[in-house]
Simulated scan of single mutants.
Amino acid sequence: MKRLRNPRTGICQGDVMVFAEFEEGGAMWTGSGKRERRKSVRFDGEFSSPPSVQVSVSLWDMDTTAAIRADLVAENVTSTGFDIVFRTWSDSRIARLRASWMAIGELPFEDDWDVE
């Protein structure tokens, strides 16, 4: 997992492989119906309170013979981490998915602000 943390700005970001199931024949690739994968992410440092977290797809490897159905969200956000959650349904087949994320939160100390 690649991460960058800048404690003076309250920003932490990274890129993580959520799953890769093509070679093992996992349910995301071979199954159908509702399916879900979760990946826990821990921040390098702790925020003062739960930050705002944005997630986006940085790599997807999907079969195109069926409709591509995907939902990617951040859940269970705390001051120390969160869960990346990927969901699909019906006959969509997903071989692998990598997600980028960025957390923006309160600075750890009030005097970190430079206000003129």
Rank of each mutant, 00 (worst) to 15 (best):
T64F: 04
T64K: 07
T64D: 07
T65K: 03
T65H: 00
A66R: 08
A66I: 06
A66M: 06
A66Q: 09
A67C: 09
A67N: 04
A67W: 03
A67R: 00
A67M: 02
I68Y: 04
I68F: 07
I68W: 07
R69T: 07
R69Q: 05
R69H: 06
R69M: 05
R69F: 02
R69W: 01
R69V: 02
A70R: 03
D71H: 15
D71C: 05
D71G: 11
D71V: 12
D71E: 14
D71W: 14
L72H: 03
L72M: 02
L72F: 00
L72C: 01
L72Y: 01
V73D: 13
V73L: 12
A74S: 08
A74T: 12
A74V: 15
A74C: 10
E75Q: 11
N76I: 12
N76P: 08
N76M: 12
N76E: 15
V77K: 10
V77P: 07
V77A: 12
V77C: 11
V77M: 12
V77Q: 14
T78H: 14
S79N: 15
S79L: 15
S79R: 15
S79F: 11
T80Y: 15
T80D: 13
G81S: 09
G81R: 10
G81I: 15
G81P: 13
G81K: 09
G81A: 08
F82I: 02
F82T: 03
F82K: 03
F82H: 00
F82V: 01
F82Y: 04
D83I: 00
I84Y: 09
I84R: 07
I84C: 05
I84W: 04
V85M: 14
V85N: 11
V85Q: 14
F86P: 01
F86S: 00
F86I: 02
F86G: 01
F86M: 00
F86W: 03
F86T: 00
F86N: 00
R87M: 13
R87E: 14
R87W: 06
T88A: 01
T88N: 01
T88Q: 00
W89D: 01
W89S: 05
W89R: 05
W89E: 06
S90H: 08
S90R: 14
S90T: 12
S90K: 14
D91A: 09
D91R: 08
S92C: 09
S92W: 04
S92D: 11
R93E: 09
R93D: 05
R93H: 06
R93F: 04
I94D: 02
I94F: 09
I94Y: 03
I94L: 11
